[in-house]
């Protein structure tokens, strides 16, 4: 478990080392020439430092392109970015890809052609935006990725550490199952090829294997609670002695929880999932989900805005440095949900 906790830090160090040693890597920096220099001076005043920050951001065009704008978490990030950028004189835009990957690539192509200064995006898949990210950086546009890390490294990534979260969640699930004298579990991930599906499977698969759990089913829900509900109903019929479901996303987990409830197995079969939005907290109140990994969703938006300020202030050419950072998380259940500030975001 320690190794899993250390791994992201090591990865961050390796990438950071890569950025300093790879300063001449590929891309041009025409778009950002003279943007902000090399940060604030070693000896300065608060006023002067502030002026440098504001002048490095003023008039910059920053676009935020998540998978879809009408989502609790993506609108949370948007509001954080707006609040950080607007006082700094940034021209902020947030086009909606509306869960359409093709539309997303078109939006990115258009933003690159318009020569915006920075794109903050959420990868729908590990590979699909690789070309756009590389091209943006070559055109002198900074790229920050949020919560979904793809194959092409952005200038900065900030999000949840899905591998470690899934592993911790699996540990909790194994512990519950062993206490109940059960060993059958089922996995329901997202699309299978997206970053979080790959990372969560990477996180919980070894834990289940090590603990000798019997994984009776592994299915893709496509992040659709209706599909997850149908899968769960069927799996439960064949395995009424199931210990629980490991589910990639909280909204999908709600569909699974409803299936368990409908099968009359509420409280007997658990639902353990990544994420803990307000929607999930309502389901926890109803007793249809068991535990969730509540990561600092709002912190991702704030950290993305901080990275943006830092990139402009330091002024390194886009594509020459790549950094990865993870936000903290807590495994929550009914015992600690009320005291965990990162849980239940978006709940009115």
């Amino acid at each position: 478990m320690k190794l899993r906790r250390i791994a992201p830090v090591v990865l961050l160090c390796v990438l950071a080392a890569g950025c300093t040693s790879g300063a001449t890597e590929g891309s041009s920096s025409e778009g950002q020439e003279g943007a902000g220099g090399t940060g604030v001076e070693a000896v300065t005043t608060p006023e002067k430092a502030r002026e440098q920050v504001v002048s490095s951001l003023k008039g910059k065009k920053i676009a935020y392109v998540p998978i879809g704008q009408q989502f609790d978490i993506t609108s949370l990030w948007r509001s954080r970015l707006e609040r950080a950028f607007e006082p700094m004189g940034v021209e902020f835009s947030a086009p909606d890809a509306a869960f359409d990957t093709q539309r997303m690539t078109q939006i990115l192509d258009s933003l690159i052609n318009d020569k915006v200064d920075m794109i903050i995006l959420q990868n729908p898949d590990v590979g699909v935006l690789s070309e756009q990210i590389a091209r943006a950086q070559q055109e002198g546009i900074y790229v920050i990725a949020v919560n979904e890390l793809g194959n092409q490294s952005p200038d900065a990534y900030v999000g949840a550490d899905h591998v470690t979260m899934a592993a911790d969640l699996a540990d909790r699930m194994v512990s519950d199952c062993q206490a109940a004298g059960k060993n059958k579990i089922a996995i329901i991930d997202g699309n299978g090829t997206d970053g979080t599906s790959i990372a969560t499977n990477e996180g919980w698969d070894p834990v289940f294997e090590e603990a000798g759990m019997d994984v009776v089913s592994t299915q893709h829900s496509r992040y659709d609670p209706a599909v997850a509900n149908t899968i769960a109903s069927t799996v439960l019929q064949k395995n009424p002695d199931l210990c629980g479901f490991a589910v990639n996303w909280d909204v999908t987990a709600v569909g699974v929880g409803e299936a368990i409830d409908a099968a009359g197995l509420k409280g007997k079969v658990g639902v353990y999932n990544i994420d803990a939005s307000g929607t999930w907290c309502d389901a926890l109140d109803k007793g249809i989900v068991t535990a969730g990994a509540a990561y600092d969703a709002a912190g991702i938006g704030t950290a993305a805005a901080m990275f943006a300020q830092q990139l402009f202030l330091l002024g390194n050419a886009p594509g020459t440095s790549h950094t990865v950072s993870f936000v903290p998380y807590t495994i929550v259940d009914e015992s600690n949900v009320g005291t965990t500030s990162t849980a239940c975001y978006g709940k009115s």
Binding site: I67, F71, R222, E258
Partner: peptide, 19 residues
Amino acid sequence: LLLGINGSYSTAYGGGKDL
């Protein structure tokens, strides 16, 4: 009915086209 069965309705990721 789907709302009642699933406890939610999602249109993200192309929800509904399968139906």
